Amino acid sequence: MPIKLKRSYRFALRSSTIIALTSAFFLFCLQKYFNTLNFYILVTVALFLFGFSFIVLQVRIEKFIYRRIKKIYDDVALLESSSLSVDPITTDMRTLTAEIEKFAKDKKIEIDTLKIREEYRKDFLGNVSHELKTPLFTVQGYILTLLDGAMNDSNIRKKYLQRAAKGVDRLIYIVKDLDLITKLEVGDLNLEMTSFNIIELIQNVFDLLEMKALKKKITLTFDMDYPEPIQVYADQEKIQQVVTNLLVNSIKYGQDNGTTEVSVENLIKNKVIIRVTDNGEGIAESHIPRLFERFYRVDKSGNRAVGGSGLGLSIVKHIIEAHEEKIYVESVEDVGSEFSFTLEKSINEIDTIV
C-alpha cells in the first residue's frame, strides 16, 4: 500500500528534486566543460542540495502557510468559535476550504432562519395589534362618549356600559388565548392525564354550544348512537377545549340549516380518531397548509364579524401535539370540512377490546 504524504511534503519533495536535478545538471555541464568530471562529487552535491532544499522548503512552507491559515481560523473564530472544528489547525488547503465552506453554509442557514423568525415576529406583532385595537378602540369610544355627557341618560349609560363590557370580555378572551398558546409553544403547559369518556365530553360540548348553534339553525349530532362509553387517556380539560374550538369553528363558518357531525372510530389497537365534519362553506386548498398558523384567517378582507381571537386552530394543533398525537384536515369549497385528531385509549379500554 503506497504511503500517502502530506501535501506540503509532496510539494517540498518535488521542488527539492527539481532543484537537485537542475543543480546536478548544471554542475555536470561545468565539469564536462573543464574536463573534471567526477560522479562522486556530482551525486554528493545533488543529494546535499536535495536534502537542504527539502528541509528549507518544508520549514518555510509550514511556517508561511500555518501563520496565514491560523489568522483565517482566528478571524472566523471571532464570529462564533463553536462553529469551527476543535481539531488541530491543518495546512491542507482542501481540508481548510471544506471547513470554511461548511462554516459559510451553516452561517447562511442561520441567517435565513433569523430572517424567517424576524418576518414571523413582525407578522405576530402586527396581528396582535390588529386583534387588540378593535376592542380597545370600541371600549375607549363608549367610555369617552359617556364622559362627554351621555352618562346622564340612564338608558344610554346602561347600553354603552354593556357594549364596553363586551369589548373587555373580548380583550380578556384574546389575552387568555395568547397566554395559552405561549405556554404551549414553549412547552410550559403541564398536562393532567386522566381516563375519561370521550363520548360524554363531546355531548357536554354539544349542550354548551346548543344556543350558539340554534342561532344559525345548525344541528350538532353524532354520526351514530354510542351506547357504550369510549375511554381515552388525555388531559380532559384541554381535549374539551379542542372539541369546543373545532365545533365553534364549524358553527361560525357553517351554512344556515346545516349539520355538524362528530364520530369516534377505532384507528388501531390503542388509538381512536375523532372526526368533526360539517357541510359548511369549506376551505380552499391553498389555505390548508397555513390553517393552523397563529392569526391566520382564510378571509383576507379583515372582517372580524365572526369573532374569535384567530388562535383557535393554532391552540388545537398545539394541544394535540402536546399529547404526541396527530391532527388532520380535509376540506372542499362549498362542500364542507372535516377536522380529525387521534387520542390514546385508556388501558382499561384496550383490555376490554382485547
Rank of each mutant, 00 (worst) to 15 (best):
R10E: 07
L13E: 02
R14K: 08
F26H: 03
L30I: 15
Q31T: 05
N35C: 06
N38P: 05
Y40Q: 12
V43M: 14
T44V: 09
L47H: 04
F52G: 06
F54T: 03
I55P: 00
I65C: 06
R67T: 10
V76D: 01
I89K: 04
T97C: 02
I111E: 00
K115M: 00
K133P: 00
Y142S: 01
L146W: 05
M151W: 07
D153R: 04
L161N: 15
R163N: 15
R163C: 05
A165Y: 11
A165S: 14
G167L: 10
D169Q: 12
I172A: 08
L184C: 07
L189R: 12
N190F: 09
E192R: 07
M193I: 15
N204R: 13
K215H: 09
K217A: 11
Y226E: 06
P229K: 04
Q240L: 06
V262A: 08
V262G: 04
L267N: 08
I268M: 08
R275T: 07
T277I: 09
D278E: 09
G280E: 04
E285A: 14
P289V: 06
L291K: 01
R297I: 00
N303K: 07
A305P: 00
L313S: 01
S314V: 06
S331G: 10
V332D: 10
S337A: 11
N348K: 14
I353L: 15
